[in-house]
Write a protein that binds this DNA or RNA. Structure first.
Lengths: 212, 212
DNA sequence: TATATTCTGGACTCATCAGTCCAGTCATTC
DNA sequence: GAATGACTGGACTGATGAGTCCAGAATATA
């Protein structure tokens, strides 16, 4: 609840930016690892090598800190659209995209961010939204752009690239991602690869332009 | 930690089965609504119209109660394969299945079970597994069976019905389910319907047998 | 009726954790 | 070197919640 602004920033000892970063880092780690309830301010302060009071001085409250932590995390873990080569045809580019996406999806980090955002949906509705936009939505947009470009070149018969992008990405999740999400025995790697290949092939088949 | 067995079940006042059920019901409701941490034993006892001690007498500990509650819930909320008509062709049956699945998926209950199982993944790994088997896995199997039957009749060109079933079901989740999961503004109903129709059409296109 | 057991409800312990307060120390600016 | 504000660490408050204990009431069997 406290106002976080410095009383007179020009005078006295300035707040340490290093400490601020340390705290935020520690918060990201601990919140992701243990969830909101599971990570105490004391733990975070200790992990950052800082007193509890300093945490409050920098961030005001646990809630505020939580918001900033998750937000900072989401912003840096998106799928970068830069690595999509628009000149490559779908048969080359889609398997590549699919594999990258699957790797991201099945990692420990995605699982945790997912868990946090899901479980805190009620207490922190804005977090889910934040993650949705910086995560899935961004990935979808990148794919949709690529698909649209291919459609324009006549390589794919897609009228609604947005739909098609969601279809591809959601499809890729498959059994493997559910198993990760719900802590089940993971699928063997070759089964995952086979599934992904099958998805891409199926997708291309559905959207291949009619032969001339 | 306490042993829950009655000391001498034949003698004395027997444990009330009614109370047991009431407690379990209340536990399901409150755990689903508030999560594991959010639902206190006191709340549950109160909701069941019973003393806290009775809860402990019946279930031993909060953890045990939690496990039984989620387990009982999962068992009764599966997708029933009975309502699939194997004689109907894909063009008729798949849109029907897709709609039913989407309704289930976007409901409040699915969201909550999902949230609980996801957030308790670390403390209660067996719960996720339980849900996975009684939920998604069962639905997938029903669809896979139907697809296999259609493949056998030559109506679909599917060699791996399991893959195809996961593809269809995962694809259907789409943007709408992500929005539900992450507490975002829901999509308008007509957009959801359009997406579902598009998915089914796309699926059938990909698996239509080559013309003779 | 005697006995065994459940159920109640309230009091109790124990632990955890968010957030505050404060006195003393440290770094920075004027 | 004086004023100012950040930082520390420990003590403190207040709240919450799991699990236990107990005395008395209720309910079943023998």
């Amino acid at each position: 609840m406290s106002a976080i602004e410095a009383k007179n920033p020009a005078r006295g000892r300035p707040r340490s930016e290093t400490k601020r970063k340390k705290i935020l880092e520690a918060a990201v780690d601990l919140f992701l690892a243990n969830g909101y309830e599971g990570a105490s301010v004391e733990d975070i302060a200790a992990a950052a090598g800082v007193s509890r009071q300093t945490v409050y001085s920098h961030f005001g409250s646990k809630e505020d800190l939580f918001g900033l932590a998750v937000s900072s995390r989401c912003k840096k873990s998106g799928v970068d659209p830069d690595r999509i080569d628009y000149s490559q045809p779908p048969e080359v580019m889609l398997p590549e995209i699919a594999r990258r996406f699957a790797t991201l999806l099945l990692g420990e980090d995605a699982k945790r961010v997912n868990a946090i955002c899901t479980s805190c949906a009620d207490t922190h509705p804005e977090l889910g939204q934040l993650f949705f936009e910086h995560g899935p939505c961004q990935a979808k947009q990148a794919v949709a752009d690529y698909l649209a470009s291919q459609a324009q070149r006549g390589r794919l018969a897609i009228t609604n690239p947005g739909f098609a992008a969601w279809q591809l990405l959601c499809m890729l999740k498959g059994e493997a991602q559910l198993r990760v999400q719900f802590n089940c025995e993971p699928l063997p790697a070759d089964a995952i690869d086979a599934y992904i290949d099958d998805c891409v092939a199926m997708f291309i088949r559905a959207y291949t332009p009619a032969a001339v």
